[in-house]
C-alpha cells in the first residue's frame, strides 16, 4: 500500500493523477486530436474488428461489452465485430486497472495488432479513477499503451461504449468536451427545495420531464 499516498496533487484522497483542468480547453488542440485519429482510422470506418483485453477488471465492464451485441444496441449493424485474434483486430478495448501481471499480455496484444489501430480505455479502472498505481496495478492504461478514446463509467453503459467506438472511428464527435456539467437553475421557488441535509429521492415525474426536455433539445 506504499504507493497509495505518494502522488496526490489534485485529489486529496490519493488517486489524483488527473491534472486539474484548465478553465478553458484549447479548441484547436481538440480538433487536432480528432483529426489525427480520424485520419489514422479512415480505412476501417465501416468494418472494424474488436479485441478485448481484461486487465483485472471486476467483469462488469465485460458484461456491458457483451451487451453491445444485444438487439437494443446491435453493434453489428454499424459494422463492428468482435474477434478473438489480435492479428485480426483493428481496435483494442481494455478493461480493468492494468494489473502488472497482465502487462506482458497487454503489450503483446497491442504489438500483434496491425496498424492502424486504436485503443479504447473502458471504465473508471483504466482511466485511473479506481486504483492508484502500486505494486500490483498500473491503475492507468495511459501509462502502458497510448489510449485514443476514454469511455468513463463504472461500468460504462453500452451506449457509452457504442459512442466510444463510433468516436474512435471518427463517425461521431465527443459530446462531453464542451459540456460544463452545470445547469441553470429552474424557475422552481427555493421554498420548494427539500431541506438540504435530508436525503430525498428525485421523484419519477421530475426525471421523466427532464428526460423529455433532454430529448427535445438534443
Amino acid at each position: 500500500m506504499s504507493g497509495r499516498s505518494s502522488d496526490s496533487t489534485a485529489r486529496p484522497s490519493g488517486i489524483g493523477r488527473v491534472a486539474t483542468p484548465q478553465p478553458k480547453a484549447a479548441d484547436a488542440e481538440i480538433r487536432e486530436v480528432a483529426t489525427s485519429l480520424a485520419e489514422s482510422v479512415r480505412s476501417f470506418r465501416r468494418s472494424l474488428h474488436i479485441r478485448t483485453v481484461d486487465t483485472g477488471s471486476c467483469a462488469v465492464c465485460e458484461s456491458e461489452i457483451r451487451l453491445l451485441a444485444a438487439p437494443h444496441y446491435d453493434l453489428h449493424r454499424l459494422g463492428f465485430f468482435f474477434t478473438p485474434a489480435p492479428r485480426h483486430a483493428d481496435l483494442l478495448l481494455v478493461t480493468g486497472p492494468v494489473a502488472r501481471g497482465m502487462e506482458v499480455a497487454l503489450r503483446k496484444t497491442y504489438d500483434a495488432m496491425p496498424d492502424p489501430k486504436a485503443v479504447v480505455a473502458v471504465g473508471a479502472c483504466p482511466l485511473g479513477g479506481v486504483f492508484a498505481p502500486d505494486d500490483w496495478v498500473h491503475g492507468n492504461l495511459d501509462a502502458v499503451i497510448p489510449v485514443d478514446v476514454f469511455v468513463p463509467g463504472c461500468p460504462p453503459s453500452p451506449l457509452a461504449l457504442l459512442h466510444g467506438l463510433l468516436l474512435a472511428v471518427g463517425r461521431l464527435g465527443a459530446k462531453v468536451t464542451e459540456d460544463p456539467f452545470t445547469a441553470t437553475a429552474t424557475p422552481r421557488p427555493a421554498a420548494d427545495a427539500p431541506p438540504p441535509t435530508k436525503a430525498v429521492e428525485v421523484s419519477q415525474p421530475a426525471v421523466a420531464a427532464e428526460a423529455a426536455s433532454r430529448s427535445e433539445t438534443t
Partner: peptide, 20 residues
C-alpha cells in the same frame, strides 16, 4: 441533478474533468 448524458466518451482524459 441527473445530467442525462450517457454518451460520455472523450478523446482526451482532461476533457472528462469538469470544474464547477
Amino acid at each position: 441533478r441527473e445530467s442525462g448524458v450517457s454518451e460520455l466518451a472523450a478523446l482526451r482524459r482532461a476533457d472528462l474533468v469538469k470544474r464547477i
